[in-house]
Design a binder for these strands. Structure first.
Lengths: 274, 274
DNA sequence: CTAAAACTATGTACGTCATACATATATATG
DNA sequence: CATATATATGTATGACGTACATAGTTTTAG
């Protein structure tokens, strides 16, 4: 997988692109993000590359979190000067985008038999596991719809069982978006609950502390439903639960995914019938 | 709604809290975020307040985006020195948190009759509209589960119809999380599609450009499902669609929400039956 | 009523960040 | 070979978050 970013070599590279922000160069920029650069170039052989830089960024993020990923830190990791990076990457934002794509890696192979639910659950479990392994991925600001090769590969893998199940184009896309959003959203929220992270903000982290702290100021008058849920969950928690099922789904996630799939299956059945 | 953040007045305020990061002060910090400060204080009357600061931050974010919200800019907006803010807010992270809660505002009133689906759709539509109005809310990094009064009020409002419909505590919470995630995720992705934003990254924005650019490099070999979906959507697009329904839901969102609600309703029916 | 304590607003300063710009160097093309 | 063109580097700039010290103000303790 080769990333080359925006270096169109036309006039003065991406600088032009970033400024005009109009015209056919836009297309070329994404194209070059994918296709790799023309082989015959002048100048010295580049020792650095977008991949090496992104991999270094991944290493740093894995070790010290997303905040630790600065241009200087990445350059130091590679043993180059800070400004060298800008010969391969036009901005930090774009670097993070490539980094996220690299970190996402290849999507899982799904059981290709007719069991849609199984395949989707596997996919969801894999994505969930990915966010568990690399929590910092949730912190990468996503500026637009995914365009990286790996991101698209993940999307493609999910679309396969959905299409096979009988969803038409737009529905499959919506369903895929939906499932992605569920995993991201739930991962986002449940991360610090389980980790006992300590941010720099002096807030409590860890499920127990936060739950108790919030419970204390939950006025049942103003928040009746929340109070009810909290009480109910306290009762439920008596029977120790909290595990993952065979696809690696935590109960909350499984509930949402399964209910959604119930609805989708019913929809497909209804569509077929008409 | 009064926000007072972490100023426990015990020794040297939140500084202590942030350092120890353990002990009962944690609870007090959230408590104080809510309850307001003790009335009898020494020192001069504070002219600034967390609310005023957060409101200024909202104003700036509304006008110039989240990136424009710096401590210096906020202070300038209010006509105070930068460091004054730190008498009311312990860090920028926490300020953003409060800002997001202020910007979220009050949740909508939902039709309280038995129509669960209608109520949920209204809620979803309102949240969607909120993200449309204040796109920058999607950019506020969320470090933990929501604890702000408004955030919790939104959650509470959504939980009401879900509980009324017959979900038990944990299920209702999961469903609410789920719906929130859908809206956030879809808003996140579809924002720049519709806006024609131009980021600083020299990437094309706007649905048409991006779709075409991506289509060109979509190798049907590697991305069969994606290519199929793209082709199907191109065909579908012939009949001009793209509207919102009566609850303000864009089609993709409506599909996901409705399928999920289908599944939830079936689940409830099944649970009742047993 | 006075003095101390505690809080607010401010100014200065520091370290870090992204990145614009200029320069030296190395390479492929004419 | 000469020139155009890339790359790696060094320096510099402006913005940022925030630690720290200071001056001024108001409540509380004696």
């Amino acid at each position: 997988m080769t990333y080359i970013v925006l270096d169109c070599g036309d006039d003065d590279g991406w600088r032009t692109v970033a400024r005009e922000n109009k015209g056919p160069d836009l297309q070329r920029s994404i194209t070059l993000l994918w296709s790799g650069r023309a082989p015959g170039r002048r100048g010295p052989r580049p020792q650095l590359s977008v991949e090496r830089i992104a991999q270094a960024a991944v290493r740093i993020a894995d070790a010290n979190g997303l905040d630790a990923v600065s241009m200087q830190r990445v350059a130091a990791e590679l043993g180059y000067s800070t400004m060298s990076l800008y010969n391969h990457v036009p901005s930090k934002d774009l670097l993070l985008e490539v980094t996220a794509d690299v970190a996402a890696g290849q999507p899982p192979e799904l059981d290709e038999v007719g069991d849609t639910r199984r395949a989707v659950r596997q996919w969801v479990g894999a994505l969930w596991a990915g966010f568990q392994t690399r929590p910092w991925l949730l912190g990468v600001p996503l500026g637009h719809a995914p365009v990286g090769p790996n991101q698209l590969a993940w999307l493609d893998r999910l679309l396969r069982p959905l299409l096979a199940a009988g969803l038409v184009g737009g529905e499959a896309r919506a369903a895929a978006l939906h499932l992605t959003a569920i995993v991201r959203g739930l991962a986002q929220i449940s991360l610090d609950m389980t980790g006992g992270h300590q941010g720099d903000d002096g807030f409590p982290h860890g499920e127990a502390e936060l739950a108790r702290a919030v419970a204390d100021l939950l006025d049942p008058q103003s928040y009746p439903a929340l109070a009810a849920v909290h009480a109910a969950e306290a009762a439920e928690a008596a029977g120790g639960y909290e595990g993952v099922d065979e696809d690696g789904l935590v109960p909350e996630l499984a509930f949402g995914v399964d209910r959604f799939l119930d609805g989708v299956e019913a929809w497909i059945a209804r569509s077929r019938q008409v």
